[in-house]
Amino acid sequence: MGELVATNITKSFDSKKILDRLFFTVKEGEFVTILGPSGSGKSTLFHLIGGMLQPDDGTFTLNQEEITGRRGAISYTPQSPSLLPWRTVLKNVVLGSEIKGEVDFNQAKHMLEKAGLSGYEDAYPHQLSGGMRQRVAFVRALLSPQDFICLDEPFSALDEFTRLEMQQWLLKIWEEHRKSILFVTHNIEEALYLSDRILILSKKPATIVEEYTLPFARPRDQDLFLTDEFLQWKREIYQALQGNLN
């Protein structure tokens, strides 16, 4: 189970309105992406869902239970991988479950293997490449007991090749587990390739101006990028973004 409902979420910093009456739902097992310009309040939205900040107005419910202002209800990967440098990869990926209680090292090893990280269980974060660190952070999110995952631009710091590779990897792993994901990016192709649904955020104060349900079948692969349908969608989303930015 992992259904998130955001109702009327509003947040200001120092009387400057950042988020203005956001309504959206992420259904069980759905991959939803929020697409918005830099500085529009995407990370702020995650901090609100995660209970780091209190919204001025509105509520979040997870599986019909209110979680507004409560920490630890969702599993989260910040913009930087945020791995503990003194822990090995294996000890890092169990951190989320360790905080919540039960640790299952066998499951963790199994997951690392599936994630293409076998042989790195005992490596330290500084011995990994940027892409591998992101993988570790994502495996940590998957292994956390919460069944709702928030990913904040996990691939924005990676080069184009690694990014493509990581997107494909993410889809493969996710399609096996199907935990609900709320994903944030400002990359249109990434949003189209990964998501079931895209929400478009306007400039300040941010509100959801458009919502698109994508028809692409799963499992998806990189051939999708070159199909006419994909390019058409890309044009449409691009125009939508342009439209609400000007």
């Binding site: 901090h47 995660g50 209970g51 780091m52 920490r71 630890g72 209800a73 969702i74 599993s75 989260y76 910040p78 930087s80 945020s82 503990l84 951190l95 989320g96 905080i99 919540k100 956390s144």
Partner: peptide, 12 residues
């Protein structure tokens, strides 16, 4: 602060 943020969000 990044690690602190992560740990707090994870409900530590």
């Amino acid at each position: 602060p990044e690690l602190l943020h992560y740990m707090q969000m994870a409900g530590a």
